[in-house]
Simulated scan of single mutants.
Amino acid sequence: MSLLLSFGVLVLGFHHLQSIPDSWSQHYVFVKFGKEHTLECPLQGEGISWICPHNARSICSKASTRQKTLHLPNLSHKKSGLYTCTNALHQSYSTYLLIDEGQDLLNISCTSDSYTSSVLHCSMDKPFTGPSLLRVRSYSSNMTQEGKEMKIPQDENQNFLFDIQLPNSCPSEELMDPIQMSVEVMSSHEYTSRDLTFYRRDIVVPKTPENVTFTKEKIMWSNPSWTPYPSFFPLLFELTVRYRNNTIVTKRTEEQNYSAKDVQTIRVRCRDLYNPSSWSPWSPRLNVRA
């Protein structure tokens, strides 16, 4: 295959992790478990030879390893690892052989602070049991954001948190323009990927309403500071009021005030008025003096 002429990371499978490269290669291909593939050495000159991973030494012991191509039949986890070709000039070129495990391993969720935020906050279940590399790209309106690379450490946390920058977009047009994201994770022996598509309206978790006050028998608050276009993004508010007789009342309103007497504590949160998105966090509990 012509893609192998530039030899980057060739992708294949699940195995105990050893080490990972420092960054993603510019060129790589994916091969499913049990399939065959042929590596091609891009080096020029005589004396081509191959160095194979420990579990695949029998492949490199054959006379065929003196050729510029190395045929790998029935690919398995044991054949994953680092393959290197060399020539008589002592030049070398290496590629990782990994198994593509598909999309089922990646469980990812993302949220946005607002409709105008340029950052997504994402959470991902770690697909592998050791250190790995994560690469994320976002797309919108035919614009591609540069990929972001991160190392996923080997620790007790099963969840990995990361942020991704979004391409610039007009907030008033977001309903017509879905966000697309490409996520890839690799280790020294494994690879998995997933493509995501979603609308901002479905993942917005607003920030908390601000400036909650109680004056002259009236509770008042203001929009979160991220809403510079309130006409585009009207909010529904929910407040919980504890009265001095310990009665608790929950009220939903589109207004930014609510009349009440004998109030003891107040909390307020918000969400999109027209789309049943997630609620914001509650505002800090306001204790009202008697």
Rank of each mutant, 00 (worst) to 15 (best):
W279H: 02
Y115F: 15
V204K: 08
R66C: 09
S6D: 12
V268K: 06
K218T: 15
I203C: 07
T84Y: 01
T192A: 06
R269K: 15
L82C: 11
S112L: 15
Q18M: 10
N157G: 11
D104A: 15
P281H: 12
R135K: 12
D155N: 15
T111D: 10
G8Y: 01
S225I: 11
T111E: 13
D163L: 07
K218E: 15
R267Y: 05
L120G: 04
Y243K: 11
H90N: 14
K218V: 15
T144V: 11
C52Y: 02
K216Q: 14
I108C: 11
H16G: 07
S6N: 11
L106N: 02
T95L: 03
D100R: 03
Q256S: 02
S123F: 10
R269N: 09
F237L: 03
I248D: 05
T65N: 13
H121E: 14
E217F: 10
P234A: 05
R252G: 00
H189Y: 15
V119N: 05
T86N: 10
L236Y: 04
K126Y: 07
H54Q: 15
A88M: 04
V212N: 01
S118F: 03
N246R: 12
S49N: 04
V29C: 07
Y191E: 05
S25N: 01
P171I: 02
T84P: 01
Y274D: 11
I108N: 10
S2Q: 12
R194K: 15
L39N: 02
L166T: 03
V204S: 09
K261Y: 13
L236F: 06
P234H: 08
K32W: 05
S49M: 01
P224Y: 02
Y83G: 09
L43H: 01
I179H: 06
E149H: 07
D100Y: 04
E174A: 09
L239H: 12
S172N: 10
E46H: 11
S118H: 08
P209H: 05
N107Y: 09
T253S: 10
I164N: 02
Q67E: 12
T116V: 10
S117H: 04
I48M: 03
G45S: 02
D177S: 13
L72P: 08
F7K: 07
C270P: 06
T208F: 05
Y229F: 14
P127C: 09
Y258G: 06
E210R: 13
Q44L: 11
N159R: 13
N87R: 02
F14W: 13
P228N: 08
M143S: 13
F232K: 09
D163Q: 11
H90F: 13
M150P: 00
T192E: 00
I248F: 04
R252S: 08
R57P: 00
S92V: 00
N257C: 09
Y274T: 08
F14H: 12
I219S: 06
A290I: 11
V185F: 00
H54K: 14
L196P: 03
E146A: 14
L75Y: 02
E146I: 09
D195M: 07
L82Q: 11
K68G: 00
E40T: 14
N107C: 01
N223Q: 12
M143R: 15
S277D: 08
T265S: 04
S259W: 03
I164H: 05
I179S: 05
I59D: 06
I164R: 01
T84I: 07
R269Y: 08
E254W: 03
K35G: 05
V288M: 00
I152K: 01
Q44E: 13
E40F: 12
S109G: 09
